[in-house]
Write a protein that binds this DNA or RNA. Structure first.
Lengths: 332, 332
DNA sequence: GACTGATACGTAACCGATTACATTGGCGAC
DNA sequence: GTCGCCAATGTAATCGGTTACGTATCAGTC
């Protein structure tokens, strides 16, 4: 039952040809007679031969897989991202090798080192690491694409115009008449979090409104709720709130309602990402086409691998304001 | 810049030892002097040497990666499953190689064939394929674990007691006084879908209630809504509804509300899975610990790889009824 | 001092593909 | 008939590791 799988030599012997001919038949080379190819194909079918991927990789220095290094896998954001990547990868005939990278640069380096020799290129998402750290960790000989991190000079980076998104949220709140604004950002050392806040604050200031309240969260639901609790406890008041992602906005909404505040009458709330949950909860948000960011990253990486070019670096996916009940009222 | 990465021979030359010693130092073998190991390690650091994974795989027939073949990647169910697998895999020092498998058995076979030689084992989830098809496609020499599919004699299978889950849902609806029940199942050729329906119907019949309405969906939100629309259009009436997963239940709830029906007063609704969305929408459901199914599958697979044993086959993850507003009333 | 055994290390075969280069055979031109 | 050329095929080197086996060194024993 558990027998040694057939090798290319077994096939050659069975078809009565040399290994070179088998290889040629297999890879669709020109200089081989149709009849020979037929014999080889029959032998392959007979023996249920499947080429050994490791041997092939070693020989031609290609693996047919792309490495994906993500900071986390929790929630719909990552599931959409992976879905988009998988779609594009399988269209190009690549598989995805998945790994999560922790905030600790040493461990992050490990995650990347492990990929060497197993992938033809890597897609890295590491908003929690600085540009220098990422540059230092990326293996030089491996094509790489970055997703949603500070633009790099060396590698293409598919991202989001975070500042514009933050500004869009602020302007929307101002447009519906809110003047005392608040913002819940992500970790201070997260690139996206800082950008979104900066865009938000800038838009508010430019409009001549009061300086907004700022709280620091961690992109999880709980931290949104905690931020609201703290403000209310301190007696800070606000009538418009933007969170740096939808999950924190949802946590914030729950906390607001728990304190008897109505949405949007007392506080209008807007998030960021437009995860599916947002639609169901009537949460206004900034829509990011996450799956497309994933496909885009893969497409660019494959292009790099195929022609050795780096191509244009920074590239931003378009954003879109989606106004729902949490800012406009009406059915939740 | 783009220079050839260092090989083991470069390291050997630099350290003034043979390749065998480098390999021994690298893999923590016994018979090597501390001083030699030190020299090797220094050379490795100097050259920034990283072993070539393909060569290593070829030589010792181990890859350090696990293949994961899933039917789809859409929604929180898969995101949780992958998260659980990734956690366990990285604990054991493995990476995950991801691939989606389509319903077409030929394509499904391809997905598995591509994995050969790149992985030490595979985890397959293919509820849409028959037992025979899966058995025929699974490479014989590769350890495999199945997730959420009909139990197999050859491979461990981590699953859900779907019948029990279906019955739990039915009994809950009956317990709160509902008598005219309905069920929205998944594809007829999906194993889980059939099992859940059977459990549901059996519990209803056993309790002496009228035979329930049955509609066929596809696990997507829309199909839940369509099922409800069809029933209402036909004039079928029901006061208790179970869907085979949460997404269809959510679609059904929207359709019910759109027709002015109140939940749970007019129709009590219960789903299956307990995805995060369910809690936010107050949907009663059968909780499945999805991430744990993922870790469990990986742990079993790793055990199989390590000791060559197959271990116990069928294994069911426990289920739990979670009653919320959609059946009990109260705040949504 | 010759022999034994253990220890540290080197040499070279091997894993299973790809492919540069060598070889063969067939055919047309002379 | 011989030569040259080309297409089809075979031989063997190669990719970068691991490891079986061989060898050198040294301490300990008689």
């Amino acid at each position: 039952m558990k027998q040694r799988p057939a090798t290319i030599r077994d096939v050659a012997r069975r078809a009565g040809v040399s290994v070179a001919s088998v290889s040629r038949a297999l890879n669709g080379h020109e200089n081989i007679r149709e009849e020979t190819r037929g014999r080889v194909m029959r032998a392959i079918a007979d023996l249920q031969y499947v080429p050994n991927a490791a041997a092939r990789s070693l020989s031609n220095a290609k693996t047919g897989t792309l490495g994906v290094v993500l900071p986390d896998l929790y929630g719909e954001f990552f599931s959409e991202l992976i879905r988009g990547m998988d779609k594009a990868a399988s269209d190009h005939g690549y598989l995805l090798l998945l790994s999560t990278m922790h905030a600790d640069p040493a461990l992050a380096g490990q995650a990347l080192a492990v990929m060497r020799g197993r992938v033809d290129g890597v897609i890295v998402m590491a908003p929690q690491l600085s540009r220098e750290t990422i540059d230092a960790l990326m293996p030089a000989e491996l094509p790489g694409v970055e997703v949603i991190s500070e633009a790099s000079a060396d590698r293409p980076s598919i991202g989001i115009d975070n500042r514009a998104g933050g500004a869009m949220g602020a302007r929307h709140l101002l447009n519906i008449g809110r003047r005392r604004l608040a913002h819940i950002m992500g970790h201070e050392n997260n690139f996206d979090a800082r950008q979104r806040r900066d865009g938000f604050v800038e838009a508010v200031t430019k409009a001549g409104a009061a300086e907004p309240l700022i709280a620091i969260g961690d992109f999880r639901e709980d931290s949104g709720a905690r931020a609201v609790e703290n403000w209310l406890k301190r007696g800070d008041s606000f009538d418009g709130l933007m969170a740096a992602n939808d999950m924190m906005a949802i946590g914030a909404m729950e906390a607001l309602r728990a304190h008897g505040l109505r949405i949007p009458e007392d506080v209008a709330v807007i998030g960021f990402d437009d995860i599916p949950l947002a639609r169901h909860l009537g949460l206004s948000t900034i829509r990011v086409h996450v799956a497309e960011i994933g496909s885009d990253a893969v497409n660019r990486l494959v292009a790099m691998i195929k022609n050795g070019q780096i191509g244009p670096t920074a590239h931003n996916q378009p954003l879109e304001l989606v106004a729902r009940a949490s800012t406009l009222g009406g059915p939740a």
